[in-house]
Each structure stands twice: as C-alpha cells, then as structure tokens.
Design a protein around this nucleic acid. Sequence first.
DNA 1: CGGTCTGTTGACAGTGATCAAAAAGTGTGG
DNA 2: CCACACTTTTTGATCACTGTCAACAGACCG
Lengths: 243, 243
Amino acid sequence: MVPLNSPLTRKLSAFVALSDIDLETLARFHRRRRTFLPGHEMIHEGQPNASAFILAEGWALSYKVLPDGERQIVDFQVPGDFLGLRSVLFRTADHSIEAATHIEASEVLTSDIFDAFSHAPRLATAVLWAASRDEAMVVEHLVNIGRRSAEERLAHLLLELGARLMLVGLGDKTGFACPLTQYHLADALGLSAVHVNRVLRHLRDDGLVTFQKGRVVFDDFDRLRKMAGFDTGYLDQDGPLLR
Amino acid sequence: MVPLNSPLTRKLSAFVALSDIDLETLARFHRRRRTFLPGHEMIHEGQPNASAFILAEGWALSYKVLPDGERQIVDFQVPGDFLGLRSVLFRTADHSIEAATHIEASEVLTSDIFDAFSHAPRLATAVLWAASRDEAMVVEHLVNIGRRSAEERLAHLLLELGARLMLVGLGDKTGFACPLTQYHLADALGLSAVHVNRVLRHLRDDGLVTFQKGRVVFDDFDRLRKMAGFDTGYLDQDGPLLR
DNA sequence: CGGTCTGTTGACAGTGATCAAAAAGTGTGG
DNA sequence: CCACACTTTTTGATCACTGTCAACAGACCG
C-alpha cells in the first residue's frame, strides 16, 4: 500500500539516506490520488494556495504566457517528478502547469509539506536537493535557448528528455515514447512550429534522430550527442551525499 | 558583531518567522569573511566540493561556458544574495561564478549548511524558499530569452536588476549604479554585443532608459515597464508565510 | 605613449519568423 | 463505414531581426 519504492522515493534516496520516519512522512504524500485529462490546467499562474503533485503516470508541462499570448514552456515533467513545489512555497503560483496526456498523480497539500519538514528535517534537505536539480535543468534549458542554434537546441532537448526517462525506466539509447507535438517543442525552444518541423526533417535526413508518431528514435545517439554538446553532468548523482 | 540584520537574514525573515536558534545558526554563516578582486573566478564549473557565499558587497555573475567558447550568463548576484548553493548540494559545481567587481562575501562551507539544517529545520525551509525564489528568477530569464525581442529583453533585464536592487536599498525608480559592460548584457541575453549597443541607443533615443558610465537611468519608468511586459509578481513576497 | 578594454557605427549575410496553403492523421457522429 | 471537423505535419516564398566582420573613437592604465 505504501509506495516505499515510488520513483520519487528512489530519487531522493539517491541523495540522502532517508530514515524510517522520513520514509513514512514521504509515503503520506501519496494519500490523495488524482487523475487529470489531457489539456487540463492543473495549476494556473496567479492561482493562490495551489497544491503540488507527484507525477505517477503521464506528461505535464509548466509554462508561462506572455501578455501578447505567446507561450514559453519552461520544463516538461515526466513520471517520478515533483511538480508545482514553487507554487506551494509562494503565496500564488508563478507559472501554470498543464497535463499533456492522461495523468495519474498524488496531490500534496501545503500543510503536508510544512508538517513534513518540521518532523523530518533530512527530508527537507532531500527536497531542497531535488528542487536544485530541477533548477539545474532550467539553467541548462536557459543556456540551450540563449546560445545554441535551432538544430542544437532541438537535439539537446530530445537528448535530455531521453536521459530523464532512462532514469525512471521509460527509455533507452534507442529512443522513447513521446506524446508531444511539434508545437510543444516550438514553445519550449523559443522557435516557431514551422521551423521546428524543418529542423526535424533535417535531423532525420542526416540520420541523427527521428521524431514521428509519438516516438523519438535515436538513429545515431553518439553523433547526436556530440552535435548537441550534450553532457549529462547536470543530471547525474553518484550516490548519497548525506549519510 | 553578529549581523542579525544582514540582508540575507532580512530576506529569509520575510518568508519564515525565524526563531532565536535559527538566527544564531544563520549568524554562524557569517564567520568567514572573504574578499575577491574583479574577474576572480569564485566557483569553477566542475569544481568538486565548492563553498557557497553570501554576498555583502559587489556584483557577481553565474554562467556556463559552451564547448565552442560562448558564454551564457544565467544570473547576476547583487548584495544580499546567496550564491553557489547548487554547487554545495551537488558533488561538483554545475556552473561557474565570477566576481564582476570587488567583492566582500561570507564563505559558507558545506558542513555549515548541513549542520544548520539538522539543528534548525525552519531555517532549512527558509533556504528552500530562497532557492525557489532564485529559480523563479531564472525561469523569468528563460521566458525573457525565449519569447521576447531584443528590445524587450534588454528593458526587462534592466528593470529586474533595478527591482532587485531596490529591495536592498541600492536603487530607486530613478535608476541604479551598474558595473556591467555591454558584453555582460549580451552574454546574459543571448545577443551579440554589437546588437546590444544598437538596442541601447534605440532605447535611449526613445527616452526610455539610459545605460552609460556605470549607471542605469530610467528615463520613463512606466513606459519602459509597459514596453517590457515587466511584472514584479515573481519577486514579491507580502509577509511571512510560516509563523 | 602604446596597449587594452569598452563603446560606437556601417555594410552585409544568414538564421529563423511570418504568411499561406495543402496533406496527413485523428476522432466523432450518423 | 463514411463524412466532416479538427489537429498536426509538411512545404514554399518572402521578409526582418540579429549576427558577423571591420574599423575607429574614447577611456583607462602602466
């Protein structure tokens, strides 16, 4: 019943050796099971007192919308990810989160989180680490958009998604199932959908990677990786730092 | 002697009502005073077991360098900011930090931080909040680069720096002292220095903002703000969330 | 006084946006 | 099973924002 081996638990344990109390506290995060339909807005920018979620199944995307209607996707969330932590710590959510597919998730209330931290300080440290890891991904995304060409950006994003999915057993060097549309990629990379399409064709023609029919296939993983300047450093963690 | 009213303490107190133990623990972060010269690399990407710093005086910049030598500045740090937290939580620093000016800072060791968290859990929550606030700034920066024109990006960055400096009493609606070069702005915004220069001239000619001789002057704050779509939401915090 | 760093300007090139339209895929109800 | 609507993918033509290259002026420094 208690998912001691949930993806999140596994992830946090990789950083901090969690005590039984920590594990119990963490298990309590999984009490409220929720289901969302594709397109449902789980958290809306500006919403006060939003909850956080632990994603068990499906993909979500966090984004901001500009006054002129343009959208910038900040990050994608895949199973095992903690999402909406910032909207819990702040009074009002500073970004929106939408279900990209059918989603199964556990809802975590603000009170759950603060209670947990006062009873289980190591857990607080672990969550701080997880939040930092998320920030590292946003930073890499920033570098990606700021300084790489459209081709490199696209390659980098697909490689990062692949790497993250491998960690939770949902992908390998061959590729992974991907429910995103080319519009999603465009909104994440600061490009137009038309240009994304052109670049995808080019990458495919070059025998590097194929994005089609809900699946990403790495046709030449090493060459793609080299071309994108992709380095997993910001995702790796060798073993518990705190014992 | 113990700077109970340091900028960092003030910032954290705005989120969590800190106990005496929390405050004492926090004060212990300020034991190791350090000075750095302009251009000094305080943290180097890949460096193992780096320290964190609390900036008392001067400006720093965190950045990543790509294989081809291009640099992307991720964030600027101004007095009162906590910097390098991620490089403490990770085994190796995932980004570099360089002093832009002469810097006065307190060095915080990894052990300080972990000890603090086990003795003062509320402090851990406060630091998590501060880290999330930093992440919110990186996210806004990402949106800035991904979806805004060069002109809007520049205006937005100058407004954000202004807002942050106002919080620590180093600027007002008139403007602020700014030690950055146009190269810094270019590296932060994903633009070329030449283009930054052109856009700055345009903004100046339009009577919006002037960036010259180490000073940013807001010639028409409201119009600039409107043009950039600048909203301070992601920086605001009304009062302690946790009592 | 020469060297270096920063700021400034012009000419030209190229990446990626925009506009337009068609093809292919997906789902729905009759 | 088909017709229809809608979303997603694809391609072409054109345009503009921004990068690159080059040169020079001014400030600062030893």
